[in-house]
């Protein structure tokens, strides 16, 4: 329990520091917000002044940060500087696609990454070589190129899957997002498969596994309870960081498959220098990274009693 509290505490600290960076980062961009609002038109100083008042741009920096943060915590990210819509409404419309895509890819990474890694780690021969080769390939091919390739083969030539749009309903989404999710998952899947394989190999040579064999423990148990289970400890950490990174790479994929997710929104917002939207998305990313890492740490503590119970004898 103390472990959970200390992890939560440090997560809060991370959120405060990174939200400050996100907020202040926008002011390092050349040009001031009010100049973007008038979009290059020449306006009288009075108009500029009224804009500054409307957006509270004359408040001290820390006051603006505080106001922004407190309303952001309540789900209010202010208004888009260009479309005048509530940022939270914009996000709410886009978030499901991105989340679905990321989770879908995450499931693929976990299931196929670990699955292939375990198989490659426990048997020698052709299959192992294929997995090693495939994982090199998967890691080396950039996501957007994989996306194009998948679109050309499964969307174009074979015509099995749609290449645009995100579908509606659970089944529709699943169908529409299959190719994007596969493209998105490939690099991480490759890394996870590879690390799982190495880890399983290493674990199967460890003393306690050898001893389990010497004690006459059935093979199936030696494999799953002693080898695979223990070898997943390092894999968990890797999966955690990769799941968080999936969210960021999802933006590239959304663009390639013209999906209406957060990524496309971010790209547009950056183009139009829509401060409020960019800040909100950046903050959401930070929170997502933090939460995923927290989940991984807690999961790790569940799997490994040495973390949960401390090192004391």
């Amino acid at each position: 329990m103390r472990y959970v509290i200390s992890r939560l505490w440090s997560l809060c600290l991370v959120f405060v520091v990174s939200s400050f960076v996100v907020f202040s980062g926008m002011y390092l961009v050349p040009g001031s917000p009010e100049n973007f609002l008038v979009q290059g038109r020449t306006v009288s100083p009075e108009v500029l002044a009224s804009i500054r008042v409307q957006y509270s741009l004359d408040d001290p920096f820390l006051t603006r940060y505080w106001n922004w943060l407190t309303s952001a915590v309540q789900g209010d990210f202010g208004r888009s500087l260009t479309t005048r819509q509530d940022v939270s409404n914009l996000l709410a419309a886009r978030l499901p696609t991105t989340l679905f895509l990321t989770l879908y890819a995450g499931v693929l990474v976990v299931v196929f990454g670990i699955g292939l890694g375990v198989i490659a780690g426990t048997r020698e021969g052709v299959f192992e070589k294929i997995v090693v080769f495939g994982s090199n390939l998967g890691f080396a091919v950039p996501t957007f190129f994989a996306a194009l390739l998948l679109m050309a083969v499964f969307g174009g030539a074979l015509g099995w899957f749609p290449v645009t749009g995100s579908g509606s309903g659970f089944g529709g989404r699943l169908f529409h997002l299959t190719l994007p999710a596969v493209a998105l998952s490939l690099p991480s899947l490759a890394v996870v498969a590879r690390i799982t394989r190495t880890s399983v190999r290493e674990e199967s040579g460890s003393d306690h596994v050898l001893m389990a064999v010497a004690r006459g423990v059935p093979r199936r148990l030696v494999l799953w309870r002693h080898t695979v289970r223990n070898s997943l400890l390092p894999v968990t950490t890797v999966i955690g960081t990769h799941l968080a990174a999936l969210l960021a790479s999802a933006f590239v994929i959304e663009y390639a498959f013209t999906l209406d997710g957060i990524g496309a929104l971010l790209v547009d917002a950056v183009h139009r220098q829509d401060f409020a939207v960019v800040q909100a998305i950046a903050l959401i990313l930070v929170v997502a990274f933090g939460l995923i890492n927290l989940a991984v740490d807690l999961l790790y503590a569940v799997i490994d009693p040495r973390i949960r119970l401390g090192k004391a004898a």
Binding site: S206, D207, H208, M211, A212, V213, A214, R215, G216, V217, R225, H226, R229, N230, L233, I303, D304, P305, R306
Partner: peptide
Amino acid sequence: RTRAEDLALIAQNPHSVLNPV
């Protein structure tokens, strides 16, 4: 079965004999 029933090994370092998790 022979390993399980007829033989038993006691190794040098007990900390590496038991599965740590």
